[in-house]
Amino acid sequence: MFKLVGATGGYGKTTIIRDVSLEVRHGEVVALLGRNGVGKSTLMRFASGSIPAMAGHVEIDGKVAPTAPEKRARLGLGYVPQGRFVFPRMTVAENIAVAAAATGHDHKAAVAAALADFPMLKPKLDDLAGGLSGGQQQVLALARALATQPRILLLDEPTEGVQPSIIDEMAGILKRINTERGIAILVAEQDLDFCLSIAGRAYVMEKGRIRMEVDRDTLRADTALQQDLLGV
């Protein structure tokens, strides 16, 4: 249902990712692995439409997706960027409500639904998002993306700077939304254990390209491969 075809992009005149093609099928959880600086975040920004394509395109449901990120969001593409980027001078409730409203959903219902998914946000609802801890901001960024009612969720380094107890909780939530709502997930990560706990297969990136595609069991068994590709 979601495809990158020949994705080539970067910043200014610098090309970071070259001719990357990958696919996330309906209801699937796929990991994007690789060391620091191989282009995972650039690939995610390409997919969300935040950087212009130098070549290649994105397909949603077999059709070429429009280039504007806001149109992709309305087609069901949810994006949680690395570093969260919550709206700092808006309250937690407003962060969720604005995402729902912008994609044409009822914003009060969205806040209520988010609280059901993430009860830990409840006492913080009227606090400014900029004052939350890193882990809380990560949860909020996820809740905000879910408020757009996506069918495919792009998660960029969701465990970065988040305490282990929240990482476990997050893995549980992601598994649940994947199975209960059929939301497909593409997650870029360095935390191999986190990926192995939620993703069925993975693409491994190196120097801006996809080096290989592996399924969970192969990757879990092959420690030499883990060492070679990820340095773990």
């Binding site: 990120p69 806001e70 808006m90 604005v98 044409g104 757009t148």
Partner: peptide, 24 residues
């Protein structure tokens, strides 16, 4: 207002505002 929320989101983190569907 919804417009007010969209306007504040757009100035605070423009890239994310568009990524959640706001046509800035």
């Amino acid at each position: 207002s919804v417009y007010g929320m969209k306007a504040r989101a757009s100035i605070q983190v423009p890239e994310m505002a568009r990524a959640i569907g706001i046509s800035s």
